[in-house]
């Protein structure tokens, strides 16, 4: 036990922008709850870290989503994200509270902040984890086994940090499920005042250009119909089936590269990670780069002409056949089923 004196609990960096908390923070809190439940004898808590300005009233939301405690760092220099000030503040929180592990969303912000903090305190940081467990053989150390894809999703590595604390990891949005909030939960709010040695900003945001997102955010869709190269000739039909199901179309990288759809619709390692209730893969071969972005879907139905297609190995139901022929019929069947 004395190996890491004073280090305890699982902390989650809760990302917010303009006071709005990103779901990924809550997804990580939900996962952290499962992790602490797997080592009950350690009596670990789940702690949220909330950095910002005038954000104290958000702490109750973080508790409702599963945190036992929230460390709030409220300072005007933290109003908008800054690598410099957020690194200073988060490092001081770590030094003060000594988290045994610290999870951060692998967003653009998280991937800017977490490595910088890890380097400052010489902690081990694992990027883009897809699975986190407590090592059953090292329960008294609360050693995390953190699994991540490498080589474009061809190989998975399980990474450990046996000699340093906190154990740090980033996790992409939508990799873990978010539990429903419980407004009646109670927890403790701890305020922390950082000490900024240098308040002169070295990097300044001069202008923000909001991106006009065409169409929908596929990461928030409950039903997705995915199109691969095999469905390029019938994308309208893919969209029509998606529309009948109240869902949206998404695509593999090949379809985007071929110029048939916008990058915002790309699912996979270099696109978005999705976890809808239903994913219908149409003419998708199942390259690991794509699968890495959708294999957490609750139910996967694949339609592909090639019986050897890799997509079948991650699907719940596979249909060998021609999507161009099947999709129009499927659309009619769905319409009929709605009427029935």
């Amino acid at each position: 036990m004395a190996k890491f004196e004073g280090y305890k609990d699982i902390y989650v960096f809760v990302e917010q922008k303009n006071g709005e908390i990103a779901n990924v923070g809550y997804e990580l809190i939900s996962e952290a709850r499962k992790l602490v439940a797997s080592i009950p004898h350690m009596n670990y808590s789940v702690v949220g870290i909330l950095l910002g300005h005038n954000i104290k009233d958000k702490a109750q939301d973080v508790i409702a989503h599963g945190a036992d405690r929230v460390v709030v760092v409220d300072h005007e220099l933290l109003k908008d994200y800054s690598t410099q000030f957020y690194t200073d503040a988060l490092t001081q929180v770590i030094n003060e509270f000594k988290p045994d592990s610290l999870l951060t969303g692998a967003t653009v912000l998280g991937r800017d902040l977490a490595p910088r903090v890890a380097a400052r305190i010489n902690a081990g940081l694992t990027a883009d984890a897809t699975k986190i467990e407590m090592d059953p053989e090292k329960q008294d150390e609360a050693l995390l086994l953190v699994t991540r894809p490498t080589f474009g999703g061809n190989l998975f590595g399980t990474i450990i940090c046996p000699d340093t604390r906190p154990q740090m990891a980033t996790i992409r949005p939508n990799v873990f499920a978010m539990d429903a909030p419980d407004a009646s939960r109670s927890g403790e709010v701890v305020e922390f005042q950082p000490d900024f040695k240098d308040t002169d900003a070295k990097v300044v945001v001069k202008e923000v250009i909001e991106k006009v997102i065409e169409g929908v955010d596929i990461t928030k869709c409950d039903i997705l119909v995915g199109a691969g190269r095999g469905a390029e000739n019938c994308l309208d039909m893919v969209k029509a089936v998606a529309a009948e199901l109240g869902g949206e179309m998404c695509c593999t990288r090949a379809v985007i590269d071929d110029g048939f759809a916008d990058k915002e619709l790309q699912v996979g390692q270099t696109g978005k990670t999705v976890r809808p209730s239903l994913y219908i893969a149409c003419g998708i071969s199942g390259a690991c780069q794509h699968v890495a972005g959708m294999d957490k879907s609750d139910m996967i139905i694949a339609i592909n002409r090639d019986p050897q297609a890799e997509i079948f190995s991650v699907s719940n139901m596979g249909f060998i056949g021609n999507v161009e022929e099947i999709l129009p019929l499927l659309k009619d069947e769905i319409i009929a089923a709605k009427k029935a």
């Binding site: 010489n122 902690a123 081990g124 940081l125 694992t126 086994l145 061809n154 190989l155 998975f156 590595g157 399980t158 990474i159 450990i160 940090c161 046996p162 000699d163 340093t164 690991c288 294999d295 996967i300 019986p307 079948f312 190995s313 991650v314 699907s315 719940n316 139901m317 596979g318 249909f319 060998i320 056949g321 021609n322 022929e325 099947i326 019929l329």
Partner: peptide
């Protein structure tokens, strides 16, 4: 500080039922 504990190639998941039927 990070060490590789183990590596593997692909989580084999889902017991797929595959069908070959008319459209």
């Amino acid at each position: 500080p990070t060490k590789v504990h183990s590596t593997f190639t692909k989580d084999v998941s889902a017991d797929t039922e595959t069908f070959t039927l008319p459209a």
